[in-house]
């Protein structure tokens, strides 16, 4: 890998963008890698969490936005809790996903994005998540038709999976959606 720093890249526009979107000081990170040490998803990632920050520091926008890592991050905040420099990495990951969507970067983890979309659409529809529809739609859209199908009876029996949606205050939820979309 090679990276050229010239009068353009030295302007650090990408870092500023991430800082603005996340409200986090990216240069506070001193690359101790404690975030990566604790990250439960690290084994699946193409870049470790600290590497994402490092690449952001150097302005490697394309590489960061195309990474699988930003989509695999579960937002569990283990990194955030443990970072000695108070870098809220989970928030940075959020910001990177937002930027990636805004810039229409082809997502490296299509399923993750699909899941997020379907999840939110059921919430919007019923005021809370409706697992039955969500799983059905996800399995069909993603093409993993029978994914986790054998877990269904057990979940049904325990009441973790419902046949019919439980409606809550749909209107309030719609207002929330509208509110956030306006921002």
């Amino acid at each position: 890998m090679k990276w050229l720093i010239d009068s353009d890249t030295s302007k650090l526009e990408f870092v500023r963008e991430v800082e603005e979107e996340s409200g986090i000081k990216i240069f506070a990170c001193y690359q101790c890698s404690k975030c990566s040490a604790g990250c439960p998803i690290a084994f699946e990632m193409d870049y470790l969490p600290n590497q994402i920050i490092r690449m952001a520091q150097l302005g490697m926008k394309e590489r960061v936005l195309a990474s699988r890592t930003i989509w695999l991050c579960a937002g569990c905040e283990t990194c955030t809790t443990r970072c000695p420099r108070e870098v809220d990495l989970a928030a940075v990951m959020d910001a990177l996903r937002i930027i990636a969507l805004r810039e229409k970067v082809k997502p490296s983890e299509r399923d993750v994005q699909l899941f997020n979309k379907i999840f939110l659409s059921t919430v919007r529809k019923y005021g809370r998540v409706f697992e039955g529809e969500m799983i059905g739609r996800f399995n069909i859209s993603s093409g993993h038709l029978f994914k986790d199908i054998f877990k269904a009876p057990k979940l049904l029996k325990r009441g973790r999976l419902k046949i019919f949606p439980a409606l809550t205050d749909v209107k309030k939820m719609k207002d929330i959606f509208k509110g956030t979309e306006d921002i």
Partner: peptide, 12 residues
Amino acid sequence: SDTLSGTQIEIE
């Protein structure tokens, strides 16, 4: 180079 990102670096 930058070992933290594993990148060869060239600066003008």
